[in-house]
Amino acid sequence: MKRNLPSVRHIAGATLLIGLSCVTVPLHCEPIALDFSQHEIGIDSSFTGAQVLLFGAIQGRRDGDIMIVLRGPNYPTVVRRKARTAGIWLNRSEVVFVVAPGYYAIGASSPVDEILDTRQREVNQIGLNNIKLMSEGAVARGGSSAQYQSALLRHKVEQGLYFDEPIPIEFIGANLFRARFNFPSTVPPGAYKATVHHIEDGEVVATGTTSLRIRKIGLEARIYQTAHDSPWLYGILAVVLALMAGWLASAIFRRS
């Protein structure tokens, strides 16, 4: 089930304290004070998704806009292209994206194209088309790796893991801001990093980062860990369980 968020009063109060502490000791503070409403999300059998609040405070007088980039852990991702051969759909070619974020979302306090120009968006990897995806593998005749990248982005958006529209950033008072990020039930475990840019006149003038972790808990965690640490053992157990299930089903049908 989805996790509850803290009240706005508590969040605003905590953020204000962060801002005041930074004003008191400016040499030891980041230009932007940031925090998540929770720093860890547990995935168990009842997990249906979660919503997390990112809040922050700008030091000094607020001018310009805020841009947030939230990325999940990088995973190798394979995109295959099928073709019909003798009435059967077969994999004809594939491209492996060696580094692809498992989750990607951006937040903006104004329309993105009004905040940063094309070059700045490319440099800071803001927007789906600006994600740097390293690919390798065979490409079908007449195709290109760009087609496979478009297919990957489209599939991730359909899964709710990538967002093609920016999440709105709300300002609370003069210097406080917040943004809500949703995670679907299929969100991959790992470390998530939020990079927040303070932008004035089309230039990034300050940057801050914060992170959260998503991990499996309970029986799911043990199964997941076994599959990654000892894949041979996981494979043997899966085969044994399948054989036992088949034998049990056969015995039940024979009796009936």
Results as ranks from 00 to 15, higher is better:
Tyr104Ile: 04
Ala138Leu: 10
Asn130Glu: 10
Arg141Ile: 05
Arg141Phe: 05
Gly143Cys: 08
Ser110His: 11
Gly142Met: 06
Lys132Gln: 11
Ser135Val: 00
Asn124Leu: 15
Ser110Asp: 10
Tyr104Lys: 06
Ile126Lys: 09
Gly102Arg: 05
Asp113Pro: 00
Ile115Ser: 06
Ile115Pro: 01
Pro101Leu: 07
Leu128Gln: 09
Asp117Ala: 13
Gly102Met: 07
Ile126Ser: 06
Gly143Trp: 08
Val139Leu: 07
Asp113Asn: 13
Val95Pro: 00
Ser109Arg: 07
Val112Trp: 06
Pro111Ile: 09
Glu114Gln: 13
Leu128Pro: 02
Ser145Pro: 04
Glu114Gly: 08
Ile106Asp: 04
Ala140Glu: 07
Ile115Met: 13
Leu128Gly: 06
Ile115Cys: 09
Val95Asp: 02
Ser144Ile: 02
Asp117Glu: 12
Glu114Met: 11
Asn129Thr: 12
Gln125Cys: 10
Gly127Cys: 08
Ala146Asn: 13
Ile115Gln: 05
Phe97Ser: 00
Ala146Leu: 14
Tyr103Asp: 01
Val96Pro: 00
Ala146Val: 11
Ser135His: 08
Val99Asp: 12
Asn129Leu: 11
Val98Met: 12
Asp117Tyr: 10
Val139Asp: 01
Asn124Pro: 01
Ser135Cys: 02
Arg119Thr: 12
Asn130Tyr: 08
Arg141Lys: 11
Val96Tyr: 02
Val99Lys: 12
Pro111Lys: 11
Gln125Leu: 10
Ile131Ala: 07
Tyr103Phe: 15
Ala105Asp: 04
Glu122Lys: 14
Gln149Ala: 15
Ala108Lys: 03
Ile126Thr: 06
Ser135Met: 00
Val96Ile: 14
Ala100Gly: 05
Phe97Ile: 02
Ala108Gln: 03
Gly143Glu: 11
Val139Thr: 12
Gln147Trp: 05
Arg141Tyr: 02
Pro111Leu: 10
Glu122Phe: 10
Ser135Ala: 12
Gly137Met: 04
Val99Arg: 12
Ala138Ser: 12
Val96Phe: 04
Ile106Tyr: 02
Arg119Tyr: 12
Ser135Glu: 02
Leu133Ile: 03
Ala105Val: 07
Arg119Asn: 13
Ile115Val: 15
Arg141Asn: 08
Glu122Arg: 15
Ala105Ile: 00
Val112Leu: 15
Ala100Leu: 07
Gln147Phe: 03
Arg141Cys: 03
Gly107Asn: 02
Met134Leu: 14
Thr118Arg: 14
Ile115Arg: 10
Ile106Glu: 02
Leu128Tyr: 06
Gly137Pro: 01
Val112Tyr: 04
Gln120Gly: 11
Gln149Ser: 13
Ser145Asp: 05
Ser150Tyr: 02
Val96Leu: 15
Thr118His: 12
Ala138Cys: 06
Gly142Tyr: 03
Ala108Gly: 08
Ala100Lys: 03
Gln147Ser: 12
Tyr148Asp: 01
Ile131Leu: 15
Val99Gly: 01
Arg121Gly: 06
Ile115Ala: 09
Ala105Trp: 01
Ala140Lys: 01
Asn124Val: 05
Lys132Pro: 00
Ala140Leu: 09
Tyr103Val: 05
Pro101Asp: 08
Leu133Pro: 01
Lys132Asp: 09
Ser110Cys: 09
Ala146Arg: 15
Leu128Met: 10
Met134His: 10
Val123Asp: 10
Met134Ser: 11
Gln120Met: 15
Ser135Ile: 00
Ala105Leu: 02
Gly107Glu: 00
Gly142Ile: 02
Tyr104Val: 03
Asn129His: 12
Gly127Phe: 05
Gln120Arg: 15
Tyr148Cys: 01
Arg119Cys: 06
Ser145Gly: 01
